[in-house]
Design a protein around this nucleic acid. Structure first.
Length: 415
DNA sequence: TCTGGGGTCCTAGGACCC
DNA sequence: TCTGGGGTCCTAGGACCC
């Protein structure tokens, strides 16, 4: 710990997806709204309005359960593009307050406000000014937590909700945390909570009474981090990093759950092709090459397996990703078994391809160019406008209804 | 009426190397 | 020939977060 305390803000947008949808359709305001899909769809709640929450609806709950709890709720499909646009507006406001901004997800951020007193005044005044400006420029409510660590800021923003500001005065961390439920500590989920309850630990204050060594013995490395958290410290892992320290993604993945389970090999393979294309495209956008390709396969009964393979030559090419994931699929799928979900996951990134084989590298480079051109067309005309015929006759696609612009399907052949 | 999609981090065992 | 110990890479699974 440094000699003088930091001032960290955690800014969390209130019911973000719902609030953005309300800006597009003001008639939703004040009503029970569920974002994430229609009431009978296979899926879960992405966000619920405070009105819907009164009926017990919350994020991650199956849509059908939400419909049962709150039958009068309005169900709205999610619009990721809208949320990204508003997230950028949010970032703009935050960045005008501190150069040290780190978006922790699409709707929350950490700001390091240490040493900004001369510019913005004391923490509470700065927070209220930020709160006002956010509303003025985005029309959205947020809650702001302030503390000497990420952890304290995060926990206090949750306690400030909705639409509030909460400052934990330096030195008061333990007093603030002690009465809180252990579940309020970020990282403590259902499993850890149950384990802690088994030890008679219900509140953060109970946790703080145990020795670090005891918690380490009980929970390993995680126990040690937990002990620190109970004192309000950013102990361990990501929490320890400086705000704004930029971190490039470590993995890129896409997955798809079928509306109805299927055992049709053609449909399954075409889904893998589509997911491989999505992953390949993201890799090219990020300018990275993946060494490890992983398949995720979930059966009708929800049992799930993952199978991975690490390549000698890292790739960002759709058909190479597909070829690998297809092999993994064919080697591991119980033939005839109905599949609920398929996923394609890329990791172990390199910034340059391994071009041990120069001739091969040349061929790959031409592929790369063709793919970039296709990405560009998709940007302009939509995802369904371009299909690259693959060299391995594996490029058949799922039948698709998406062609919103009504454009003729353009098919570009690589040679 | 079951259980999305996109991530991060951790553990544990086996292979392999010195 | 009855066997070590550390380090790293790889794979599979799981907890957790929004």
């Amino acid at each position: 710990m440094s000699s003088f305390p930091k001032t960290i803000f955690h800014v969390d947008m209130d019911a973000f997806f719902v609030s953005v949808e309300e800006l597009y359709d003001p008639s939703l305001k004040g009503k029970a709204v569920v974002v994430g899909g229609q009431r009978h769809e296979r899926g879960v709640v992405s966000a619920a309005s405070y009105e819907a929450r009164k009926f017990g609806v919350h994020s991650a709950m199956p849509l059908r359960t939400a419909a049962k709890l709150c039958s009068h709720a309005i169900f709205v499909d999610g619009h990721p593009d809208r949320y990204r646009d508003y997230s950028e507006k949010v970032y703009g406001v935050l960045n005008s307050f501190s150069p040290q901004v780190e978006m922790a997800s699409i709707d929350e951020a950490y700001l390091d406000m240490t040493g900004t007193d001369r510019l913005h005044g004391p923490p509470l005044r700065a927070a209220h000014a930020l709160h006002r400006k956010m509303k003025l420029e985005t029309q959205l409510n947020c809650s702001i937590g302030i503390g000497i660590s990420r952890l304290i800021a995060k926990v206090s923003s949750a306690k400030a909700k909705p639409n509030g500001v909460l400052w934990v005065i330096p030195g008061q961390e333990s007093k603030f945390l002690a009465p809180l439920d252990v579940r309020d500590i970020p990282g403590v989920g259902a499993v850890t909570e149950k384990n802690l309850h088994g030890l008679g630990i219900y509140r953060v204050g109970d946790l703080a009474r145990f020795d670090d060594s005891f918690l380490e013995q009980q929970f390993g490395k995680w126990g040690l981090a937990l002990a620190g958290k109970a004192r309000g410290e950013d102990a361990g892992g990501w929490f320890d990093s400086a705000v704004g320290e930029d971190t490039q993604a470590k993995s890129i993945s896409h997955e798809h759950t079928y509306n109805e389970d299927t055992a049709d090999p053609q449909q399954l393979e075409s889904t893998l092709m589509r997911l491989s294309e999505m992953v390949g495209r993201r890799l090219r956008e990020a300018g990275v090459f993946a060494r490890t390709i992983q398949l995720k396969l979930r059966y009708k009964d929800f049992s799930t397996i993952t199978r991975a393979h690490t390549l000698a030559d890292p790739t960002q090419i759709d058909t190479e990703i597909f070829a690998q994931v297809r092999t993994l699929f064919l080697n591991n799928w119980r033939k005839g078994a109905e599949v609920r979900l398929l996923g394609v996951h890329a990791s172990s990134f390199d910034n340059v391809p391994n071009q041990a084989n120069l001739l091969d590298g040349d061929r790959r480079q031409r592929w790369q160019q063709a793919l970039s051109a296709a990405d560009h067309l998709r940007d302009r005309f939509g995802d369904s406008s371009v299909t690259l015929a693959s060299g391995m006759n594996a490029g058949f696609r799922e039948r698709t209804h998406e062609n919103p612009a009504g454009l003729p399907g353009k098919h570009k052949r690589h040679d």
